[in-house]
Simulated scan of single mutants.
Amino acid sequence: MLGAVNAIFDEASKANVNTEVEFAVLQAVTPHVVMKLDLDPTPLESGEEDELEFPTSLTLTEADVGKRYALIRCANAKYLVLCEVR
């Protein structure tokens, strides 16, 4: 059992090798969510290419435009929006 748990954690840690936390400002929520990364001039969109992924518990509204969010860049070149930051 312990060997199986260790194998799961080993595989999970391999996926985290190319991850990086970044910060972005929410620029729009309709028709697609658009976020501008602090260190990249090209905004990310949740459109056809699905550059952004969201937790099911995160709801973005027009009132959130202009707020900063923490994102993690994943090994599959997508970004997972984690939470609002101050």
Rank of each mutant, 00 (worst) to 15 (best):
F23D: 02
G47Y: 04
S13C: 11
L44M: 14
G3Y: 02
E45G: 04
L80C: 09
E84S: 14
A70M: 14
D10N: 12
R73Q: 09
L52I: 01
R86V: 12
Y69P: 01
H32I: 01
H32L: 03
G66Y: 06
N16I: 08
K78R: 15
L82P: 02
A63N: 12
K14M: 13
D50R: 13
N6L: 15
Y69S: 05
G3S: 05
N18C: 09
L80D: 00
D40M: 00
D50E: 15
V81Y: 06
K67S: 13
V21L: 07
A4L: 15
K36S: 13
H32S: 09
N76G: 13
F9S: 12
V65C: 03
A15S: 13
T30R: 09
L26T: 05
M1I: 12
F9R: 15
E53I: 11
A4I: 10
A15Y: 12
S46Q: 07
N18W: 03
K67F: 03
E53M: 07
K78A: 10
D64T: 05
K78F: 04
G66S: 12
A63Y: 04
E45S: 15
M1S: 09
N16Q: 13
E22Y: 02
S57K: 13
Y69A: 00
A24M: 00
T56Q: 11
A63V: 01
V34A: 09
D38E: 09
E84M: 09
E51C: 07
P41V: 01
V21W: 00
L39N: 15
V21I: 13
E45D: 10
L2V: 02
A28S: 15
G3Q: 10
T42G: 05
G47M: 05
L39P: 06
P41Y: 04
V29F: 12
S57Y: 06
L58E: 04
A24L: 04
V25S: 03
G3C: 03
D40K: 00
P55L: 00
G47F: 10
E62C: 01
R73M: 06
V25A: 00
L80G: 04
V17L: 14
T19C: 14
P31H: 08
D50S: 08
V17P: 04
L60K: 02
R73G: 08
S13V: 04
V17C: 01
A12E: 10
T30V: 10
I72H: 00
L71C: 11
E20S: 11
L60T: 04
D50V: 02
T30M: 05
L80I: 07
V5Y: 14
E48D: 13
A24I: 06
L39T: 15
E51F: 09
T19S: 13
E45W: 05
L39M: 15
Q27V: 12
A15F: 12
P43A: 08
H32N: 11
L71W: 00
A28Q: 14
A24K: 02
E20I: 05
P43L: 06
R68Q: 05
L37C: 10
S57A: 14
L58A: 02
Y69L: 06
K78P: 02
A77F: 10
V85W: 03
L52M: 02
V34Q: 07
E20W: 10
L58H: 09
D50K: 12
A24R: 02
L52S: 06
E22L: 14
R68C: 01
R73E: 07
L71S: 00
M1D: 07
S57N: 13
C83K: 15
L82K: 10
K36W: 00
Q27I: 08
A12M: 14
L71K: 00
V5F: 12
